[in-house]
Simulated scan of single mutants.
Amino acid sequence: MQSTAYPDPNREKLVEAAIPHVVFDGWGPETFQAAVADSGVPEQMARVAAPRGSVDLAAAYHKGGDRAMIAALEAADLSEMRFRDKIAHAVWLRIEAVDREVVRRGMSLFSLPHYAPEGVRLVWETTDTIWNALGDTSNDVNWYTKRATLSAVFTSTILFWLGDDSEGFKDTKEFLDRRIEDVMSFEKAKAGVRDNKALSALFAVPNAILGSIKAPTGARRDDVPGTRARAQASTPAGGK
């Protein structure tokens, strides 16, 4: 399994230098200037690596969490896990890869109206990375529904985690398990509709329309959420 494209080394130095400041100052201009001063990256090079300043550093921090999650999945033995447990484990590894206060500041940044679309894209790419790492081969409308439902699970779990004071984040883990169970129940319900002849006939036209939807590929638009992550997809971690 291949992690992701090699990150810009100057940007990564800036991210590392920014983290101690983010907790106190957020992902703002002050943090970027402090990161430039502490990292030793010349300001001109820093502006090339992160044209939007701290916004680019916040996005890079998020993507670094994705890379760390993939590395942890590669090292994990998932062979004895049920598929739903593999998903929950991947989400939890992603949470463990980041600092809670830094994420809290990132949530504040990407909740701003002009940055919200990028926040959505980052979450989508995270869930796309998870599905690809676990061997998802869907190439129809299910490609979208899987990522949409897992995006909702991931976002709600992060929000719960940010306010969780239970020992070892026990409450968050239980919350995540419940959300994954909801997703699995939804998938079972979809399968039941497909297997029921009467319901299949009733939904024949909608199903035909949905059946024409295909997952994005490298030959199609590259601005579809998750397309770049899918292009870097790799072999399954632990099998499906």
Score class of each variant (00 low, 15 high):
A5C: 10
E12S: 13
V15D: 00
I19R: 05
P20W: 05
H21W: 08
V23S: 10
Q33M: 10
A34T: 03
V48D: 05
A50R: 00
G53V: 00
D56M: 01
D56I: 01
Y61L: 02
K63S: 11
K63I: 11
A68V: 04
I70P: 00
A71N: 08
A72I: 03
A76P: 00
E80I: 08
R82C: 05
F83L: 07
K86A: 00
H89A: 07
A90G: 04
A90D: 00
V91L: 14
W92V: 02
L93A: 06
R94S: 09
R94Y: 11
V98F: 06
D99M: 06
R100L: 11
V103Q: 10
V103A: 12
G106V: 00
F110K: 01
L112Y: 09
L112C: 10
L112R: 15
P113V: 12
Y115C: 03
L122Y: 03
V123C: 05
T127E: 07
T129I: 10
I130G: 00
A133T: 04
A133C: 12
T137G: 09
S138C: 07
N139D: 15
D140M: 04
K146Y: 12
T149G: 10
A152N: 08
T155N: 10
S156M: 11
I158Y: 05
I158T: 11
I158G: 00
F160C: 06
W161I: 04
D164V: 06
D164L: 06
D165G: 11
D165F: 12
E167C: 03
F169H: 15
K170M: 11
F175E: 01
L176F: 04
D177S: 15
R178F: 12
D182T: 13
V183A: 10
S185A: 15
S185T: 14
A191H: 13
G192I: 05
R194I: 13
A198V: 15
L199Q: 09
L199E: 07
V205I: 14
V205E: 14
L210K: 06
G211Q: 07
A219K: 09
A219E: 15
T235N: 10
T235W: 13
T235G: 10
P236W: 01
G239P: 03
